[in-house]
Amino acid sequence: MAVVSEKGAARVNPSVPVPSLPPSERPPPDPAPAPPAGRIHVAAEGFSVFYADVEAVRSVTLAIPQGRVTAIIGPSGCGKSTLLRAINRMNDLIPGCRVSGRLTLDGEDVYGPQIDVTALRQRVGMVFQKPNPFPKSVFDNVAFGPRIHGIRGRSQLEAVVERSLRRAALWGEVQDRLHENALGLSGGQQQRLCIARALAVQPELLLMDEPTSALDPIAASRIEDLIDELRGEYTVIIVTHNMQQAARVSDLTAFMYMGELVEFDATSRLFTSPAQARTQDYITGRFG
């Protein structure tokens, strides 16, 4: 160990204890992340999605815990929205789309023969990039799902609407405008209305496909606050191009690239010390 220069070496008192050095090689990377704590809500095992011959999602294996917010990030065309939309079978509507491998919700095969797709979509709500309220009143937008599921009583519907709007942090702004057309709301309010509409059918899981990319920063911030409030009660999976947003709102982050899952880890670790070079390059803007 070179403690002193050659000039001074002879002066070092031999009785000075010389501590043993740690191994000189660079420390090994951290082992694979521990499986997320808590009950697994959504699990993919070798799950692929094909559009005709194109494999848009390539043999993805990951386990998403219940009650946590999981972000999926990656460059355009990496398969993140396709993976998200596979969870409530939105991709079924695309001609030529097929899947292989296994995708389960609470252990139940989402693509199994027994599955009732309508019931699945009740359990798995979805919020899209552009707010898409129906051209109806605020009240009727939120009451739409519960009515389809057979709730008819006025007071019962009013209770569901109020609870859902409160949960979506919108009640205070619309309680006097419940019977006005929802298209008269601001973009941010419309998006929270869509979240309220999704919550009205009491889903267990919310899928959000870039829910703030069409909103101004203040409206986006309110959606992020809302996601934070939903944490614990709902499992939230959010696809976002905004990495700062993913870092702010999520507990876990999955990075996808060219259809593959490159890295899945605690958000705090993935954004500060990613294990994979491709993740590092993406989050620091070196590509994508």
Binding site: M1, V3, V16, P17, V18, P19, S20, L21, P22, P23, S24, E25, R26, P27
Partner: peptide, 14 residues
């Protein structure tokens, strides 16, 4: 990093 680890250990010598 390896060099930095060795330097940490030198502090005890000083």
């Amino acid at each position: 990093v390896a060099g930095a680890q060795a330097i940490r250990a030198q502090d005890a010598v000083i």
